Amino acid sequence: MANKYNFNLSHLPERTIRPRKNGVTMVMDKGISLRQAEDFLSVSADYVDFIKLGFGTSLITKDVKKKVKLYRDAGMQVYVGGTLFEAFVVRNKFDDYLKYIADLGMNCAEVSDGSIELEHDKKCEYIRTLAKNYTVLSEVGSKEEGVIIHPARWINMMLNELEAGAFKVIAEARESGTVGIYHKNGSAHNMLINRIVNKVKIENIIWETPQKSQQAYFIKLFGCDVNLGNIGVDDVIPLETLRLGLRGDTFFSFLPEEMKQPI
């Protein structure tokens, strides 16, 4: 990727390129127009791996099939938000969900239970079914503020869902970044995150990081090729500069010690 930059600046970390297994960026499309999607891709396509049509927006967005095709033609994995999966499941319409995402031309699917109570064995069964035809991302954690899940349960769910066929597991934060792996003020649950990565391989986790401070936290903790999600369409380039140490929050993260001294 470095040879595609506008200047060959030294001491930038080496970034993975698509198709990536590590350092993936998952973007949330909250219902932007087809024209906005074209503009977004014109500047950000190289840095995006997954596009989520957030929550239930795909159900009411105009030209959604055209937009899905646009994203897929740009080499991205596209899926509808887990909340919509749950909306079908709670109505006992999983077969209709399968038809819906097939009709949209999706190549990826998200399985979550952040809004509904779903037996974990049943959730893993949905993952196994979808994994036959789709790249599956499974989301772990509640969307409800104040719901505390014990670290051991986070770990067990993540490991079981990966075993069931999930490509990666998503650590829930919601689009606000104030639940799941975060406190309600947006700061990280350090103990929970450390417990998780002691048992689950870091490359198998996508951390939802809608806020800049959260993106910087994980980049400084795990490096430029940490998997990050719930990124806004306008935040992809700013995120990439964080990954490369070209923004104040991570400026010194990848520089040698001699460059960190006063000039």
Rank of each mutant, 00 (worst) to 15 (best):
E145R: 05
A152E: 12
H183M: 08
W154S: 05
E161F: 05
A173G: 15
E172H: 10
H183N: 15
E172W: 09
V169N: 03
R153D: 10
H183T: 02
A164E: 04
G180T: 06
G180R: 08
E145Y: 03
A171I: 07
Y182D: 04
I181M: 12
G186K: 02
A171C: 15
E161K: 10
E163P: 03
E172M: 06
A166D: 04
P151A: 08
A164D: 04
P151D: 09
L159N: 12
H150G: 01
S187R: 14
H150M: 02
K184Q: 14
H189P: 06
R174C: 05
G186A: 02
R174V: 02
E175I: 10
H189N: 15
L162N: 06
E161C: 10
H150R: 07
W154R: 03
I181P: 02
E161I: 05
G165K: 01
K168L: 07
I170G: 03
V169F: 05
S187M: 14
H183I: 02
A164S: 14
E172S: 07
N160T: 10
I170M: 01
G165C: 10
M191P: 00
V179T: 11
M158A: 09
W154G: 06
A173M: 05
K184Y: 05
A188I: 15
L159S: 11
I155Q: 13
H183R: 08
M158H: 00
F167P: 00
G186D: 02
G146D: 00
V147Q: 13
R153E: 15
G146Q: 07
G180Q: 04
I148D: 11
M191V: 14
E172I: 05
R174P: 00
G180I: 06
A171D: 01
E145N: 00
E163M: 03
V147D: 12
I155T: 13
L162S: 04
I155W: 14
K184C: 03
L162D: 01
G146E: 03
M158D: 10
N160K: 14
L159W: 00
H183C: 06
M158C: 15
G177S: 11
L162R: 07
I181C: 07
H183D: 04
L162Y: 04
E163T: 10
A171E: 03
A188S: 09
S187N: 14
E163S: 11
T178N: 13
A188Q: 09
L159E: 13
S187G: 11
P151Y: 10
G165F: 06
H150C: 01
I170T: 00
A166P: 06
K168F: 02
I149F: 07
S176R: 08
F167V: 00
I149R: 11
N160C: 12
R153T: 14
I170P: 03
N190G: 08
Y182H: 09
T178A: 10
K184R: 13
G186I: 04
K184V: 13
A188G: 02
F167I: 00
A171V: 07
